[in-house]
Structure formats: structure tokens, C-alpha cells
């Protein structure tokens, strides 16, 4: 048999049904074995997110470096809005009801080091809350793109 393009195309066409079946089976098997939980669920749902936010507030309250940013902040409002935002970015059943990131952080002149420090407090808070490392990283991956809206404003 001569191997040329039309032969290969014909072979693929013959195998099309089989390939489709094979991919379908893999897809179904993957879904059956791991009905993939949303990031919100990986974070522990409503209670998990609430726990993370509470531990974060605790850590900010005990911090020398960035507490001064929050000295005048109303904790109940911050807690509610941050919970709503973490829930919304992790595909939970919420809608973020606060102001835009630009508006919230306007006038603060947050620097790179401040931002990274808050990220580390958040990692600590997730550790406190028992959040699994992969869920921690996935949440950070979704928050990281907001940095541009928060720095130097």
C-alpha cells in the first residue's frame, strides 16, 4: 500500500466512528469518576469562604506592615463584600455587590510589596482554614489579574 495523503484521510474517515467513541468514552469516564467540583466547592463552599475571610481579618488585624491601610475600615462591610467577591470569582452562587477594585483601593497608593504581603496573609488564612493547596493556588490565580486595578491608585 502506498502511504499518501488521500490514504491517510481515508483511514481517518474509516476510523472516525471509533475515534469518536473512544473520546466519548474517555470524556464520560472522566466525568463519572471525577464530577469536577467548582472552585467554590473546593474552598469549602459558604462556610469555607467565610472561614478564610475571618482568618484573613484576624491576620490583617495582627499585622504591622499593612494594618494601617485598614485602620478606618468597617469590618462588617469588608467581611461581607470580600466573602461575596471570593464566592463570585470561585464560581459560587453569589454576585459581588461592592464597588469596583479601582474605586475601593483608590487613594491608598498600594505598592508591589504591600500587595504581595496581603497575598501571603491570604495564603496564611487559607492554611488556617484548612484549604487544600490546589484550591489555594487556583483562587490566587483568579485574584492575581486584579493587581493592575489595585496597585498605585
Amino acid at each position: 500500500m502506498i502511504i499518501n495523503r488521500s490514504n491517510i484521510v481515508a483511514a481517518l474517515r474509516r476510523a472516525r466512528g471509533l475515534i469518536g467513541l473512544f473520546l466519548g468514552a474517555i470524556f464520560l469516564a472522566a466525568c463519572a469518576v471525577h464530577p469536577k467540583p467548582s472552585l467554590y466547592e473546593q474552598l469549602g463552599g459558604r462556610e469555607g469562604v467565610a472561614l478564610i475571610v475571618d482568618h484573613l481579618i484576624e491576620r490583617i488585624g495582627a499585622d504591622d506592615k499593612i494594618f494601617h491601610f485598614y485602620a478606618e475600615t468597617k469590618i462588617s462591610r469588608f467581611r461581607e463584600h470580600l466573602q461575596g467577591q471570593l464566592c463570585a470569582v470561585s464560581d459560587g452562587p453569589c454576585h459581588y455587590a461592592g464597588d469596583s477594585m479601582e474605586q475601593v483601593h483608590a487613594g491608598m497608593m498600594i505598592q508591589e510589596a504591600d500587595f504581595n504581603h496581603l497575598v501571603e496573609l491570604l495564603i496564611g488564612a487559607m492554611e488556617d482554614a484548612g484549604t487544600p493547596v490546589p484550591a489555594q493556588n487556583r483562587l490566587l490565580a483568579r485574584l492575581a489579574p486584579m493587581r493592575g486595578q489595585i496597585l498605585h491608585r
Binding site: 487544600p132 490546589p134 493556588n137 490565580a141
Partner: peptide, 10 residues
Amino acid sequence: LHLGAAAGYN
């Protein structure tokens, strides 16, 4: 550094 890119690991 890709956050969470390898099955959730950095």
C-alpha cells in the same frame, strides 16, 4: 510561574 496550573500546583 503559573499559579495552580499543574493539577492545582504552581
